[in-house]
Every structure is written in structure tokens, then in C-alpha cells.
Design a protein around this nucleic acid. Structure first.
Lengths: 219, 219, 219, 219
DNA sequence: AATGAATGAGTATTCATTCAT
DNA sequence: CATGAATGAATACTCATTCAT
């Protein structure tokens, strides 16, 4: 039915079928390599891993910063989707709100949120519109989860979204030079322990003030 | 002429007075820079910060690996001292055992345990005798603290020393390019939350198995 | 059906209508960019300025050298036309012969004789038949102008066609990175001064020997 | 007599005897290569020509721009010295003032003033204090020569220092890819002709306005 | 025939490490 | 001993040219 109207419109997007694939493969390879070797990885290595020439990488991403930004956007979007999904479940089904938070945290870890550490760099373009938008989307969704968990009295009231996201990023931050496999065994334990610490009743008083993701913008 | 008789007595202690100072300044500068800029920093920068020529650095430390090892040893030793001191206090005075653990964790953060991130690299010589010895010393002391806290029923029984140390290292791991100052504001909050999660009664079941520091030797 | 009979007639002129246009636009873009940014400009830039894909450029011009050659030929031909026109005027109308030389020099500058700077490169194919032919045509015409100006006693007798053409090229040679607009303000002054120096009576003795365009073939 | 006071002060400058030599050799090689191959020359080639490793070049000159700046400063200073020497001769000895200008122009050509074309680039750091100072020094000296030549009625009054310097630079601008040897044969002829055009009585009217070196600052 | 994409070879620059003073 | 300088081996990035659509 709708296909009739679709056909004439397809001319523009088509010729890039393989180019789009290359782009995706480059970002995927970059995520992998950031997880394995940290953010200082050689871009030629990314290109090789993606199975393309190095210049193809540069055709798609003007420089290292742009590639990093796309990695961040890609991973952030995936994680936002998890958060929104969890939030929808909680709102729709009256599900266990803290459980939704737990589920989200572990899912974010599996999505390699630790690879987002570049976003925490002072040198990273925190002000780029796309980055701001992605961060805002994630913040909104996670704040929703947090508000729900707080509303049901399961989450202590003195923690902010930044506390959760920064600790989550740090605890899952990849170990350079490793396949990460061994490390994964421990990470979910640490997350679980941290989540336990977020529950009510609060067992200690927190120093400082609640962090926000915006506050990480350096300078 | 009378001074001649003095000279032989000076042999042992004197010749290294400033050399020792140089060594210490180099390690101190390295710790600072690792905390500020991560482990990939230029060694010339370390030398400059230490106020010595770069060749002096290489005279004292054969290569980057050796310098990193000494950084790790220095920081580990300081942290071990804190752990042992806490343990002694607990054993002597029947003090609050979980409180001792808390005190130790925050002290380790202030001692820049985050500078131990080189130990997280696969390329680091985890098997070097000095490193093994330092790690063992720290492990013993922290295990003592853990045993005490467990004995008084305040620490949940399903966490190992590795869980504590790895999570502690990760949560305090510096963000490259950061003056770290802003970050410090949050770190103690995260540690406090994590510590809350370590208390009894356990609020969740932990996946995987307890980590040990030895297990961090990758590959 | 009747239209079928029309088709055979179209063979010769039609198939190249837009192709010819493309060729011209590419050369024009190249001239512009050489004037603005020197000869080291990226060919992709030329294609973009011409509004065609880069591959189209390569379909028309095998490589950089061939494009440069066509630029040189195009510009040279235009300048030859000016010279021949000036010569015709002088011969027909007994006009002011040195004035014709002046007019030619400024016209050549406006035709962007500075874009001939590729001809100044040692790597340029000075011996290519088309280049030789174009250069000979220009040389003949300019020599005619010079002969006339000399015959009327206005042009000093110790300067050759090469002196004129090389100095003219150099004085109008574009400065890379410049929009050239500002530079244009000065160029005609310098040309005027140089032309004044060509007039009789000679005010100095010239060192070396008269240059010829052929002598620019380096090595 | 003065040597007594000199001896104790010599300690500082000594240890760099060879380093200073390297620096000079790098600049000299850069001038040579700019003359031969233009400003886009590979820096590795400069290092090789200077007989040092490429990193030595970068130790001495942070980047391409800094090397270029020092080339410009070096050449400009040498040329300024010529101009000042000529000016001193004219002022002291009542020598032929236009002859002094001629002598200066040919000397500047031999000092490769044509290699200064980078100074005319829009991308060059025209505002750098050292460049400004060097340009001012040169401008002052040449303006002195011009004023003298004008005062004696030999130089036409409608040309500015910028007219002279830009035309001089352009006429002596090296031909990329050549040993320049052949070209040198012609350059002094063109300069001589241009200089003739500068003499009184003026043989034509000049369009536009007198250029200044400052006006070449792009944008 | 025309295009956008892909590629490899080249160039600038950085940094760990060694050498000469 | 301590130092500044020198070096070669990376790595990021550009561009002429070729390929697939």
C-alpha cells in the first residue's frame, strides 16, 4: 500500500548502501578499540579493523575529534534507548522502579558506557550541539528513572543523576590493553554493590554535592 | 689539611643526598601528572615538572615501565601504611571496624590510588617481584580490615578484597586532561555510596565471583 | 516515428554539448584557483569549484599535468590574441607602437598571465607540441610588437621578448592564499614602471643576455 | 683591555656551540630549498639537507610556521643590513643616491629576497612581533634610501617603498623545481629595467596608489 | 558518461630513548 | 653525575588517482 509512494523517492538514499555500511563499521571498530586500548588508539588501526583504507575513515570523519563524537553519540543513543525503555515499562506497568534502575545500569554497562570516557575529557567538545542534545536526552530519561525510584521510596534522595552516571562510567571504564573479557566478570558485581548503596535507607551521609553531567564540562 | 680526615666518614650517606631527592621528585611529579593527564603523558614533561633534565630521569629509571613501576610501588606502599594503621587501630582499640574500612578507603583516594591505573594496563609488569611484594603487603592489610569488618557483622560476606580494591581504583581513576579538582568533589560521594553497598544486610545478590588483585593480571 | 529520421543528423555536434561545457568550466575553475592559491591546489577543489564530480575532471584530463597544460594553453591563446590584435592595429593604423606594447602588457595581466606560473615549474612539459605551438604563436606576435616599437625608436634595443614575458609573468604571479584583489591594485603600477624602463633612451646597461621563452626550460 | 671583563661571562653561551651551528644550518638549508622548490617543501628534506634528524628541526622550530618565520627574519635582517649600509654610505659620502638604490636592489636579489614570498602569504604571521620589527627596520632603511634618491631628484616621486619591495620580491621570486642558476642570468636584467623605470623624468602616469609593506597584510 | 567513494603514498609532528658535553 | 641535544620510530592527516555504481 504505502510502497507505491515509496518507490519514486528511493533514488537519493540508495547509492550509498555500502558507504553507510562503511561508516557504521568504522564506528563499531572504534568502539571496540576504545574498549580494548583506550582513547589514544591509532586511527589507522580503526580503519584496518573496519576493513577500509585509512583515507576512507577521514572521508567520513574529518578528524579524530569527529570520530570520537560519533562514537559518543552512537553509544549514548543506545543507552538512552535503554533508559527510555525502562522508564516506559515503569510508567506503563507499575513495575518495580528500583529494579528498572538496576536493569538500566547493567544494560548501560553492556553497551560499553565506559567507552564514553572521552566525553569526560576536558578536550572533548562538550558544547557541540549533537553532544548536548544526546546528553540531554540521556539525562532526561535517567532522571525519569531516578524520579520514579525516588517516588516509590526505594532510592535515597541525596543522589543525583550525575552521581549515578559518573560512577557507572568509571566502574565500567575499560582497562587499556586487554580484551576486557576477564574484567567483565567483576564489573557487574561492582555495579550491584554500588546500586545497593543507592537504596533506602541511606547508610551514610554524602560529602560534597550531587553531580550533574553538565558539571563535568571542564574549565 | 685537617678536613682530609673527615672525608672517609662521609662515604655512605653523602654521595646520594641530592640523587635521592631527584628520584623522589621524579616519582612525585609522575604521580601528579598521571593524576592530571593519565598514564600516556610525555616523560619529558615529568622531568620538567620534577625540575631535572630528561636524561636524569632515564639515569634513575631505565624506561617508562620502570618509572611506572616505582610510581605504583610508592603509592601502594603509602596506601598499605594506611591500611595497616587502620588495622592496628581496630585490633588495639576495638574501634568501629567498618568505620576503619571507610576511613581507609577515603584515605586511599586522597593518596591518589587512582594513580595506580598503570597497574590496570595489560603491558604493566604485574609479575615483577617488587610489585608482587607490594601487592601482597596491601592485600594482607586490607584483608585484615575486611576480616574484622566481617567479624563484627557489618560487612557483607560475599565481597572480596579484589572487589573493594578494583572498584576503589576505578572510582578514583583520573580523567585525562582534567585538573582533577572538580572531579574530587564527586569521588568521595561515590566511594561513600559504594561503601554503603558493602554493608550488611546485603541488598542484592552478586553475579560472578569475588575478584582478587592477582586476577587483574590480564592474559 | 518521424523523429527517428532526425537522430542520425545529431551525431556530430550533440553528444558533446555539455561535455565541452564541463571541460571549459574545469579549466576556468583551475585558472581562478591558481590565481587565488597558487599551483599546488587540490584538484578536488577545482572539481568542486567547477561544479562537477572529481572523476569528471579526471575523465577530461588524465592527470594534474594535463590539466595544467590546458590551463597554460588556454591562457596563452587568449594572450596571443591580444598580442596579435595589437600588432594588427599597429601595422594597419600606424598607431603608437609603444602604446600598443603597453596596452598588450596590461591586457595580459588582466587575462591572468600570472596563471602561467605552472610554466615556470621545471616539471612542466615545456616540450609538449601544443605548448611549443602556443608559445611560438605568442612569441611571434610579441616579437612583432617589439619589432615595431623598436622600429619607431621608442623601445630600447637591448631587451628581448623573453625579458618582457618573464618579467611580466613574475610581476603578475599570484601570491598563494591571497584573494589577489588587493594585489591587483599594485600590479599595474609595477608593470607601468617596468614598461617605463623599457623606453628609450636606455638609462642603464643590462647585465647578462636577453632571455627567450625557450630558455625557461630548466635543466 | 676589554678582554679582562669578558672572560668570566663566557660560561653560559659555550655549551651550545654545535646546537647553534645546527640551527643555522637548518635555516640555511631552508632558504636553499625554498629557493629551489618553493615554500611547500618537505621539512624532512630540510632536515636531511642540513644533515640533522627531522626531530632536531622540530626541537629548534616548533612547526613549519616557526621555521618560516626564522627564514624570513634571517633574510630580512641581511637585506636590512645592506640597505642601512647603502644609506650610511650615501649620507656620509654624498655618493650617488640612485646608484645606492641600484646597489641595494641587486644585493637584495642576491640575498634571495625572493625567498621572502612567504611573508606575502595570507597565512603567514604578519603580526608576529619579530616580523613586525624586522619589517619596520627594513622599511625605515629603504625609505631612507628612497628619500635620498628623491631628494637628489633622481627618483620619481610617485613610487612608494612598497612598490619597490613588492616588485623586487616578485621579480626575484624563485622558480620552483629549478636550481635557479639559469634564472639568475635574467633577474638582474629585469631589476635593472625596473630601476630605470623608477628614474626621473617619469615616463608614464601610475594607476592606483603607492603600496606599503603593511598593506600586504591580508584580510 | 558522470558521479561519489575508496585507496595508498606522502608529509607534518610527537615522543621514548640515546649521545655528547 | 647531570644535562641539553639528537635521533628514529610512531601517528595523524592530505591528496592525486582509481573503482564501482
Amino acid at each position: 500500500m504505502a510502497t507505491v509512494t515509496d518507490q519514486p523517492q528511493r533514488r537519493a538514499p540508495r547509492p550509498r548502501a555500502d558507504a553507510v555500511r562503511n561508516r557504521e563499521r568504522i564506528v563499531a571498530a572504534a568502539v571496540e578499540l576504545i574498549v580494548e586500548h583506550g582513547t589514544e588508539l591509532p586511527l589507522d588501526e580503526v580503519a584496518r579493523r573496519a576493513g577500509v583504507g585509512n583515507a576512507t575513515l577521514y572521508r567520513n570523519f574529518k578528524d579524530r575529534g569527529e570520530l570520537m563524537r560519533h562514537v559518543v553519540l552512537t553509544v549514548t543513543d543506545r543507552i538512552s534507548a535503554h533508559a527510555e525503555q525502562g522508564l516506559a515499562a515503569v510508567e506503563a506497568d507499575e513495575a518495580d522502579s528500583f529494579g528498572a534502575l538496576r536493569t538500566f545500569v547493567h544494560a548501560a554497562a553492556d553497551e560499553r558506557i565506559g567507552a564514553l570516557c572521552p566525553i569526560l575529557h576536558a578536550t572533548f567538545e562538550h558544547a557541540h550541539p549533537d553532544v548536548v542534545a544526546a546528553r540531554d536526552r540521556l539525562t532526561v530519561a535517567v532522571e525519569g528513572l531516578i524520579a520514579r525510584a525516588r517516588a516509590t521510596g526505594q532510592l535515597r534522595s541525596d543522589v543525583g543523576v550525575g552521581d549515578l552516571m559518573v560512577a557507572l562510567s568509571q566502574l565500567t571504564r575499560p582497562l587499556p590493553g586487554t580484551g576486557c573479557m576477564d574484567f567483565d566478570r567483576f564489573v557487574h558485581r561492582h555495579l550491584q554493590l554500588f546500586l545497593d548503596g543507592l537504596m533506602t535507607p541511606a547508610r551514610s551521609e554524602l560529602p560534597g554535592e550531587a553531580a550533574t553531567l553538565e558539571a563535568l564540562r571542564q574549565e
